[in-house]
Write a protein that binds this DNA or RNA. Structure first.
Lengths: 234, 234
DNA sequence: CGTTCGATTGATGTCAGTCAACCCGAGTGG
DNA sequence: CCACTCGGGTTGACTGACATCAATCGAACG
């Protein structure tokens, strides 16, 4: 837990996280000393909806999904958190229970800062509060966009927007366009945008036929024509 | 603008707003001195998507809707803000343009605090930052719920959840149940939950036939059986 | 090479959207 | 006080797109 390697990882973790950008060396060291690390295997549950979380959790490696079970029995995926993202902020300030279940999509490392420690940090470094505020604004922005595109009745628009979203978050430049390592299965994508896996499958096949994307196996996609995805679909 | 009446209204305004709860008398007075008031008639636009907003806007009387125009030409309503709610926070901290258009649903009074003034206030009263943080968490919570219910394919679930939402925000106790003064027309409700006005109409008629709600004119609804709306709908 | 689980494809049914007609209540003017 | 008008709300018939069910495929792993 406190070997020199994990410590170095901690520092890397802390410095990767936007909310700690701009901290002095000493402050950063203090943050690192407060961090508790943990690892999760694929499919492991990090937190369960309705449980009480003892702190703020920052993803330092890997990807997780945050979702709720709908009344119909589906999962509604709300967020995909990856390197540098954090969650658990609602519990930090208010004494709310977690409002979603978080599950690892792959092997994942996290850092946790306990509630009391964060409060302490917050008091001595008001800038961190500002950073958190900004990050929450970003998340609001993300959700507003998601709501707009899901509220949109056009299924194509939803698919396009989720592909662009993934390209933005996980895309790598590639000779033919943008290569995405998909964080979710077809079913996962379906649960993200409120469709069935079959429909997602069909629509993605269509996009491939049209030469807009190219599937590489099932877990990778190359976006060949990004502009086409941005076009308004009626 | 600074007659004794409007001043008294200002104080009422400031004290009604959760983010100013817990301020000392002097601080409250300072806030009041910074407030600029404005009034809007029904249907007037308060801010236009993409424009730049000079400050934080607090609704002190009336109701407004925040929406975006979708690619399909529909409005996607994101929020209904009423007494005590604020918006414009994204512009306050980051230099983002407004991400939605805000329009008055009825005659509305607002208070505005300029960006610089707010920053000043923020520096001398860090607690306000915490309050804003909490409020943003609430809004995240609201959007997550909205996403869950819109993402849900069940149309009934969407209608039920918007009715419960309105009951929570605008409901008055009534001998027969909860009376709601609807902030939106059928079309508005449809735009809120991603349906058509006809479907909203049909489903609400159904709910009335089942004895779960009762419509009073077109603008009021009494919820007779709140529990039924909470039931999982397949 | 075989097994397994996810992805795809096909056939069918259902339900919300669309278009169109009609209703109703509020406001207006005779 | 009633007739008229107008805009939102309701209702009906039809259509089409997505869900559903079922069969098949195929990639990834041992």
């Amino acid at each position: 837990m406190s070997s020199s390697c994990s410590r170095c990882c901690d520092e890397k973790c802390a410095s990767k996280v936007p909310i700690f950008f701009g901290l002095s060396q000493e402050d950063l060291k203090r943050v690192v000393s407060l961090i508790v690390r943990k690892e999760y295997e694929k499919d492991e549950i990090l937190v369960l909806k309705g449980s009480n979380l003892e702190g703020l959790i920052i993803v330092s490696k890997g990807r997780v999904k945050a979702f709720r079970d709908t009344l119909e029995g589906r999962e509604q995926i709300l967020y995909i958190f990856s390197e540098g993202d954090f969650f658990g902020e609602k519990n930090l300030l208010q004494n709310r229970d977690v409002t979603y279940t978080v599950q690892a999509l792959e092997k994942t490392h996290i850092c946790m800062i306990k509630k009391v420690d964060f409060h302490q940090l917050f008091r001595t470094n008001p800038d961190i509060g500002l950073k958190v505020l900004q990050e929450l604004c970003n998340r609001l922005y993300h959700l507003e966009n998601a709501l707009e595109s899901i509220g949109s009745r056009s299924v194509e628009a939803r698919i396009n927007s989720v592909l662009l979203d993934f390209a933005h978050k996980f895309g790598q430049t590639h000779p033919q366009g943008i290569m995405i390592e998909l964080p979710l299965s077809r079913e996962g994508i379906a649960n993200y945008i409120g469709l069935t896996r079959e429909t997602v499958s069909r629509k993605m096949s269509l996009l491939q036929e049209e030469g807009i994307i190219k599937m590489v196996g099932h877990k990778k996609v190359i976006i060949l024509n990004k502009e086409a995805l941005d076009q308004p679909v009626i």
